[in-house]
């Protein structure tokens, strides 16, 4: 259990974060969302033990950051946005070094190494020199160094930045696998990514937490509760409009014709009534070829929360 209470940090006279309080349960994956300058990096640095907070307490399983000092850092694994790697070392040499640096014996690290390599999907490059690896592999080696000493909390700052789509999918698998082993805190500016991989989201604005919860709770807090979906349908305009009239909680719909007798339809629902939407369409004889939740939904929630907080 990670407990942050009244966390405040100033850089000189400039306030970076103020009175942050939250808890993270064991094996929970929590995302931190915020605009540039919202205080995300400062929060992560404090939790990683890199910066001593001006005020407030941070405890991991009851061990206090300031009181425990250097020992506290052995409980944390940290991956900054640019993975810190010694590029002249092989992956195995590097992980063996970092594991020992974090206080583990060489035998301990060697015993844990195969599982870490597998979790991070880097077992096939274990003997390669880090400098020769692709950006995606380097990111994963960065995660491996953050977990090699079996920390209680792993902090990942922008873990998917600079990755291609294939690497992003693989990284999601890695993060989900991490969540089974330890508590994970992720900071990302890619809203969909936070939504995809995290159990809970903390929204920071102006150095304060303005909302916390799962996506639907954030939507409620932002006043943008509901679901927006885009469908690709086959049928006549009359059939589709007739079916939509029977959908519970329909707020708005927008039809656009596409080639091949298809329709692209944007639908806004007051709540998550996607099953009844599909049922109504199918009952009316409309062919449902695809339904996708609008990616901009979290974005609008986020903007609603941050604009509301600054207003």
């Amino acid at each position: 259990m990670i407990t942050v209470s009244g966390l405040t940090h100033y850089y000189g006279n400039r306030r970076a974060v103020e009175d942050l309080s939250f808890t993270i349960a064991e094996n929970e994956i929590v995302g931190i969302l915020g605009l540039n300058g919202a205080g995300k990096s400062t929060t992560l640095k404090v939790l990683a033990g890199l910066v001593i907070p001006t005020a407030g307490t941070v405890t991991v399983d009851g061990t206090d950051l300031v009181a425990a000092g250097a020992e506290f850092r052995s409980r944390i694994g940290y991956l900054p946005e640019d993975p810190p790697l010694y590029k002249e070392m092989t992956v195995t040499e590097f992980l063996l070094y970092v594991g020992q640096l974090k206080g583990r014996s060489a035998a301990d690290v060697l015993a844990r190494l195969p599982a870490v390599l597998k979790t991070c999907q880097i077992d096939q490059v274990a003997d390669r020199v880090i400098g020769e690896l692709s950006h995606g592999y380097k990111k994963r080696v960065g995660i491996a160094q953050a977990i090699i000493h079996q920390p209680r909390l792993v902090i990942l700052d922008e873990p998917i930045s600079g990755l291609d789509p294939k690497q992003i999918v693989e990284m999601r698998q890695v993060v989900r696998a991490l969540g089974k082993q330890c508590t994970v805190l992720i900071s990302s500016h890619i809203l969909a990514e936070i939504s995809e991989t995290c159990d809970r989201i903390l929204v920071l604005n102006g150095g304060r937490i303005v909302a916390s919860g799962v996506e639907s709770e954030l939507a409620a807090a932002a006043g943008t509760q509901g679901t927006r979906v885009t469908l690709q349908l086959r049928g006549s305009r009359e059939q589709i409009e007739g079916a939509l009239r029977h959908v519970t909680g329909l707020q708005s719909s927008n039809l656009a014709e596409e080639p091949g007798g298809l329709w692209k339809v944007h639908v806004a629902l007051g709540a998550d009534h996607r099953e009844s939407l599909v049922a109504a369409l199918v009952t009316a004889g409309v062919g449902v070829r695809r339904m996708v939740e609008d990616e901009s939904e979290l974005e609008s929630i986020f903007l609603g929360l941050t604009q509301g907080a600054t207003a």
């Binding site: 990683a48 033990g49 890199l50 000092g69 250097a70 020992e71 506290f72 850092r73 052995s74 944390i76 940290y78 900054p80 640019d82 810190p84 790697l85 010694y86 590029k87 970092v98 640096l101 974090k102 206080g103 160094q145």
Partner: peptide, 13 residues
């Protein structure tokens, strides 16, 4: 090279 963080985040004083 950005590796200072490895040392700073380690339990070494």
């Amino acid at each position: 090279t950005g590796t200072m963080v490895l040392l700073e985040a380690s339990p070494l004083s």
